[in-house]
Design a binder for these strands. Sequence first.
DNA 1: ATCAGTGTGTCGGGCAGCCGACACAGAACG
DNA 2: CGTTCTGTGTCGGCTGCCCGACACACTGAT
Lengths: 241, 241
Amino acid sequence: MEGLESIAWLAALGAGEWEVLRTRATRLSYSAGETVFAPTPDPHSIYILEQGRIRILRISSTGDEVTLGYVAEGEVFGELPGFGDHPRESFAVARAPSTVWRVPLTLFREWISSRPPIALEITRQMGDRMKRVESRVENLVFGDVRSRLAKVLLELAEDFGRTNGDTCIIDIGISQGELATLIGSTRQSVNAAMGALKDDGILRLSGRRTELLDQERLRTIARSNRGQEREKSGASDESGD
Amino acid sequence: MEGLESIAWLAALGAGEWEVLRTRATRLSYSAGETVFAPTPDPHSIYILEQGRIRILRISSTGDEVTLGYVAEGEVFGELPGFGDHPRESFAVARAPSTVWRVPLTLFREWISSRPPIALEITRQMGDRMKRVESRVENLVFGDVRSRLAKVLLELAEDFGRTNGDTCIIDIGISQGELATLIGSTRQSVNAAMGALKDDGILRLSGRRTELLDQERLRTIARSNRGQEREKSGASDESGD
DNA sequence: ATCAGTGTGTCGGGCAGCCGACACAGAACG
DNA sequence: CGTTCTGTGTCGGCTGCCCGACACACTGAT
């Protein structure tokens, strides 16, 4: 019950494989808003999220922030990148009450070295994240606020949404301001874009929750870089994919 | 001389470790401009760059492109990300005459599984790249064209530059247009920004080569998100142009 | 020399979206 | 029950930069 076995890919390894971790890693709890780690020139731990939700972000010299992504339960985080000798440049902040294992980097590295399947799993995780970040780049470069927003909403839906018939509900208490840090925009612009999407009947907003009513249309907007196609009405939905 | 041993991290493994690759992988040559791979829903190869320079990029639905990065010699590329079961979404194009090994994904995976040190190496490589992409995101979100440009120039200098006393020379025949795809901007804006940097005495342009005269100042600009700090100090007489 | 192809400079118009400001709603707290 | 805080909605002004267009420089073929 001490959590580690609740992590699927660890459990899958078979008992004993991860026992080392339990004995030599530290289990920590954070409540929403607390910082799990901050940038450091010489990180010597990596982390595994047992349960909760962590936000990875960077802060510019002027205080603006970008959200690089969220850590899903079971994922390893905290500069896997910095695996080598790189400094860590990101913050990790709990967005919800979270339980985290802090693992000494040396231990983790040696642990991997002797257990190929784990290495493979780690590689897979990193690949996933890589892909995601690359998409983010693509999206930032192309597309206006409207289409970028569409994209993130879809991603969030996929990761955290509860599907409910046709509509998908995102209810992770994310503010428009935080959305802005995901797409590199401002609170106001996000607000405007959300309003527009609502008016187009693509999504419904009730308080802090967002419901995606028409993912198909949303997807179209996300793809269209310059999302300014004034959507009159009685639009034409087309191609699936 | 058949190349594989020229790759440092492979050579370091000791003879025989990578012999399998030689027998079951394919060695390919590309001249500048040729496509190494294109997006595919079901990639079944990964690649290792023996020698040359490869550019990884994406193309939007409207035909615009973003450069995600360049592959350094010895690096593994081609949707390591797609390691899992993801489709490949990027293009790889040779920027210079290049020699590449194409390795069947299955082989590579099994090869890793049985050789932990390699897994570690791969992880390291991915980490590096991850870090780079994350920085790219940060840069795209913050900063105007000027500061973004400054950032890329510094990166390019670090990766491909020849240092020469104080100045660092970037001479990889990169066009302003291509620079634009690195920072998500347009040829014209890049041109203007380069001009400004030149006027400020921060860099000198001679033909297709770029010389960084004052990396310190460049670094400052890169960090300052809104690089509009009118740098008009010094320069007693001006009016000029 | 001539022409095509590719990259570099420049200019003006137009607009998306950033910024600052302000009003208002709900939630947490004393 | 106010007070404070955080988040949502909106507006107008200002501007960076995208876009389209055009001239020039350089290089390599014919």
